[in-house]
Design a protein around this nucleic acid. Structure first.
Length: 496
RNA sequence: GGUCGGUUUGCCGAGUGGCUAGGCAACGGUCUGCAAAACCGUGUACACCGGUUCGAAUCCGGUACCGACCUCCA
């Protein structure tokens, strides 16, 4: 924590010095997925981005409480249907069954990408009581009104009192009011076009519904994040993250709800990650410009020539800044795959390398120290992973030169070498969150190796090179593999 | 239509008012039985038009194009 961290705050549109509300502690909330479908690659980018932010905050010595929710109710489609219900009907599952299915798949995917688990992962349906309480608070404060069993947030009154609706997303309420949304459900119940539901009365056929003072219904989508962030992080907390496209209306409404209920601005720093594009356009299922994580891994997609490993994808993502759009192309993925391998090879080499002693402080030594410093400075500058990664590759060059003898250990002091080792390894594994990947199927590789040794041994036997032949057989037996020479060739089995 | 952002070398992608980003690809070399890896070296940039400046790709203005949001979206 010696160096100062600056973060780009979407709300002020400036880089600001990061000063947590409680020194040494950080409260961070990130909008999680709506679990009605397989997580798509764009979501993954957002969660990977905030994973690195979480990791770096921890690396910097902060005690972080990271909350990421699961949305399992209240998120409606354009036509006003609940996303979860719609999908559950389609898959012929109980809504909670569907939610569990896609929650499990989401967790699996997060694990594949080696993201750390949040410290708390609350669900919207687990916080109905609290949501109703907040609706009541907002009503009591006069920033909401009830109509036919539904409760709407009064954006106009809120804006009159606080002059802040639309501040985050840079929108003016007058413009929002003039927009036509005739096609939206229950539009006539709202007093103003920009008002939004915080409690909705359910129709008879709607399954996911709860008793409330206003109607049998369900909470509005924006409410859960206000409620759960407040519950677990307090009325005001440090970081709120999410995808760019959640800025409006989701985050704008979240702020309004929190202020409407408690009179307090909930978030000190708003962080938004940018979109993942493919071939220059936003990924979109409707026009086929999309690829699922699994398709990307297997290569079963017209958009890629082959499959790419999850860590290569993670590397690809970290090679751009989280606030920039990132364009996925096959060529870019190939480049990322090779770069990732080069990085990890160097990490492996460095890990098994020891300084023989007797090093001196030279220009090279100083250069390495300055790179190590630069890596932290890069991350302190709004989590600039591409630049930190670029600096890491300068170290890769030094590591390879040490290995090949192009650079003498004498030119680097023991202290510097050890510091490089520590920092490099911490950055690669702890901050960037890369992990070693098995090259393909381990079992297949093992069997292939044994077959290979048998081939070599048979070669030796044919040449009557009994020494080599026996050496292979005896050494294999030592590690638990018994060879048996039969009429039909050599077979093997594991023993012991 | 409104709001915001972008346009960097063959591709992806950082950054800065004057100093090599980096990865991948290309070319030449070293090493090597061959290959791979690694190392050394090379080239091609900052959309366009104006302005500010000793100096701008970097700041300002305009133009063109692209994208996101405004409606479910990470």
């Amino acid at each position: 924590m010696e160096n100062k961290l600056y973060v780009y705050n979407s709300k002020t549109r400036k880089k600001e010095l990061f000063e947590p509300i409680n020194p040494g502690h950080v409260g961070m909330y990130v909008c999680g997925p709506t679990v009605y479908n397989e997580v798509h690659l764009g979501n993954v980018r957002t969660f990977v981005s905030f994973d690195v932010i979480y990791r770096y905050l921890k690396y910097s010595g902060y005690k972080v409480r990271y909350v990421r929710n699961i949305t399992d109710v209240g998120h409606l489609t354009e036509s006003g249907e609940d996303k979860v219900l719609k999908r559950a009907k389609l898959e012929q599952l109980e809504p909670m069954e569907l939610v569990q299915k896609y929650t499990n798949m989401f967790h699996e995917m997060m694990s594949i990408f080696n993201t750390l688990n949040p410290d708390i992962e609350p669900r919207a349906t687990g916080h109905l009581i609290e949501q109703m309480e907040m609706v009541q608070e907002i009503l009591d404060n006069g920033y909401a009104y009830e109509k036919n069993g539904s409760v709407y947030f009064d954006t106009l009154k809120f804006n009159d009192d606080y002059k802040s609706y639309g501040k985050l997303s840079g929108r003016k309420i007058d413009e929002l009011l003039t927009e036509t949304r005739d096609d939206l459900k229950n539009q006539d119940e709202k007093r103003h076009a920009s008002d939004f539901a915080i409690w909705m009365k359910a129709s008879d056929e709607h399954i996911m519904k709860w008793n409330s003072p206003w109607s049998v219904g369900f909470p509005g989508w924006h409410l859960e994040c206000s409620v759960m962030s407040t519950k677990y992080l307090g009325e005001t907390f440090d970081i709120h993250g999410g995808g760019n496209d959640l800025k409006f209306p989701h985050h704008e409404n979240e702020i309004a709800q929190n202020i409407g209920a408690r009179g307090v601005e909930p978030v000190k720093y708003w962080l938004h990650s940018n979109m993942l594009l493919m071939n220059g356009r936003k990924m979109s299922k409707s026009d086929g410009n999309t690829i699922s994580p699994y398709e990307l891994f297997t290569g079963e997609s017209p958009h890629v020539s082959k499959g790419y490993s999850p860590m290569a994808v993670r590397f690809f993502m970290l090679q751009s800044h989280y606030r920039s759009t990132l364009d996925l192309t096959d060529q870019a993925m190939q480049a990322a795959e090779k770069g990732y391998k080069k990085l990890m090879d160097a990490a492996h080499i460095l890990n098994s390398m020891e300084h023989p002693g007797k090093g001196e402080v030279t220009d090279k030594d100083k250069k390495i120290l300055s790179i190590l410093e630069a890596m932290e400075n890069d991350m302190n500058d709004d989590f600039n992973t591409p630049k930190a990664l670029a600096d890491t590759f300068e170290l890769v060059n030094y590591i390879n030169k040490l290995k090949d003898g192009h650079l003498d250990f004498k030119e680097i002091s023991v202290d510097t070498f050890n510091k490089m080792k520590d920092t490099f390894v911490s950055f690669v594994y702890d901050v960037f969150g890369f992990r070693k990947e098995a090259a393909g199927d381990d079992k297949g590789m093992f069997e292939g190796m044994v077959e290979l040794l048998i081939t070599i041994r048979n070669e030796a036997r044919a040449n009557k090179d009994w020494a080599t032949s026996d050496l292979i057989r005896d050494k294999l037996k030592e590690i638990g593999i018994q060879l048996k020479d039969g009429k039909d060739g050599t077979s093997w089995s594991k023993v012991g």
